[in-house]
């Protein structure tokens, strides 16, 4: 099931028929992607020289990071290493003091608003699961669904059969179908995590940012999530921030260690774990 990141994503466009309800089906594999994003050079995200400081404290310090198309990258690092701030910069929540952030080859993220960035194809899952608690599970996905998101469109919007089917597919994949009409606020923590992942999926982003996606999940759920992410890689690019090394080991071939706002080490998990500096940072001095 593990898929190797393809060199040319265009080759993956032919439909692959999988059993219904699997992750592949849910993410709309085989559907034609929009032509908007220019990724000719093979990188979906490039951060160069990003610095952010809060009242003198440097949260990010000359950070350089590249994510390839279809790559699944794990970011680890001790608390305060700047992981969340980095995600804030990518999603437009925080503006960097200096440096450039490009989505694909042409979109300058530092000049776009949060919703423009989301529309361009970057989806984010928060550390604490945030869903629309007063709405049902189905309605949550309906709002997240990739569609025209202008005010006018929302006034006249009607769900097409195709869209409804798509939502139900994702719900089935995430094993939330029986709960479709349940109010999202009544879900358990793990179910909310899945719902949020589902909202990301129907958004059909090119790049998914996932902040501690398996926090509060049972072992079985964690295993299921790992499988889901592996199946997503290749067609989507993923950036996963996680503390659970077991989970990291089971999904990533490429790991980046952040420390004090910049990249400390990069490589496979085994390589990184042998790096003396990383050991020092994690075990303390």
């Amino acid at each position: 099931m593990r898929s190797v990141p393809p060199v040319h994503p265009e080759f993956m466009l032919e439909p692959i028929f999988d059993q219904i309800g699997s992750g592949r089906e849910a993410i709309g594999l085989g559907r034609r992607r929009e032509a908007g994003l220019d990724t000719r050079h093979g990188t979906v995200l490039s951060l160069e020289g990003i610095s952010v400081s809060f009242d003198g404290f440097k949260a990010l310090n000359d950070l350089n990071l590249y994510i390839g198309v279809g790559e699944l990258r794990c970011i680890i690092g001790p608390n305060g290493a700047g992981k969340t701030t980095m995600m804030d910069v990518i999603t437009g929540k925080t503006r960097p003091d200096s440096g450039t952030a490009y989505f694909g080859d042409t979109l300058d993220l530092t000049r776009m608003s949060e919703c423009q960035i989301a529309q361009a194809g970057i989806g984010r899952k928060f550390q604490k699961p945030t869903v629309f608690e007063a709405l049902t599970v189905f309605e949550n996905l309906e709002l997240a669904l990739k569609a025209d998101k202008s005010v006018w469109a929302s006034l006249v919007a009607r769900l097409s059969g195709e869209q409804r089917q798509r939502i139900e597919e994702v719900l089935a994949t995430l094993r939330l179908l029986p709960l479709a009409q349940r109010q999202a606020g009544l879900l358990s923590h793990g179910q909310k995590q899945f719902l949020e992942i589902g909202m990301l999926l129907v958004q059909e982003p090119r790049l998914l940012l996932l902040d501690e996606p398996v926090a509060g999940m049972t072992d079985a759920e964690t295993e299921f999530t790992a499988e889901l992410f592996r199946s997503l890689a290749g067609h989507h690019s993923l950036m996963v921030v996680e503390h659970d090394m077991g989970f990291v080991g089971s999904i990533a071939d490429h790991v980046t260690v952040l420390h004090q706002g910049s990249v400390l080490a990069q490589g496979s998990l085994a390589q990184v774990q042998e790096d003396e500096r990383v050991v020092e940072v994690y075990l303390g001095r």
Partner: peptide, 14 residues
């Protein structure tokens, strides 16, 4: 009302 930020990251301009 409930999660304006989430909505922004869904691609809506609140």
């Amino acid at each position: 009302r409930d999660a304006e930020n989430r909505l922004m990251f869904c691609g809506y301009d609140p």
